[in-house]
């Protein structure tokens, strides 16, 4: 088991250098970052049939309703801050200058209660990847001046360690 990590003093975010702050002015993503700044998770839905849309999707594949940026066809709504782990990895390679974490860090594909899937890391330092299916909550972290959603675990998120996975059939 990888031990918990410490954050570099004065490094800001525990994981990413300020150079990795996302472009909050990108019109595709602005509603998400504006919501994150007030502690909410906003995601896009089709205004006509309420199908969860991908973050950069402007025409609903379920009903065909379309929306240009800023129109009513695509509705950003605050969603529950809850989901489950759809996939997860513990990244051991840390790119110098971009990753400031002192040890391996988790990347988690979260299936939100709203139906959307987002790839996020944890809100606070973590040296473990959670098991698939584990419940998670959405919290927030800030890189540079941009707040982004992140994962928080309400309870245990790992099964007991298996010494040698080669023995598992």
């Amino acid at each position: 088991m990888t031990p918990p990590q410490e954050t570099l003093p004065g490094a800001g975010d525990w994981l990413a250098a300020p150079e990795l702050a996302p472009d909050a002015a990108d019109p595709v993503m602005t509603p998400l970052y504006e919501a994150a700044a007030r502690g909410a998770l906003a995601l896009p839905f089709c205004a006509a049939c309420a199908t969860p849309l991908e973050l950069d999707q402007y025409v609903c594949d379920a009903c065909g309703a379309s929306a240009e940026i800023g129109t009513a066809g695509r509705a950003w709504r605050d969603v529950p801050l809850a989901g489950t782990v759809h996939a997860a990895t513990l990244v051991h390679r840390r790119e110098p200058g971009l990753i400031v974490a002192l040890g391996p860090y988790p990347v988690i594909d979260v299936e939100l209660a709203s139906g959307h899937r987002l790839v996020l890391t944890t809100a606070t330092p973590s040296g473990q990847a959670p098991d698939i299916g584990v419940p998670v909550e959405i919290a927030f972290r800030t890189i540079g001046a941009v707040t982004v959603p992140a994962v928080r675990f309400p309870g245990p998120h790992r099964r007991p360690e298996i010494p040698d996975r080669r023995l598992v059939s």
């Binding site: 759809h86 790119e95 890391t121 982004v148």
Partner: peptide, 29 residues
Amino acid sequence: NSGIRGLERASGVLGSVPTFALIASRYLH
């Protein structure tokens, strides 16, 4: 740093390995 990739990169998804590790995680599951 823009688009969905901007959010993913801020979450530590640098290069293609973390993404394909998620694929591997999901596939094995």
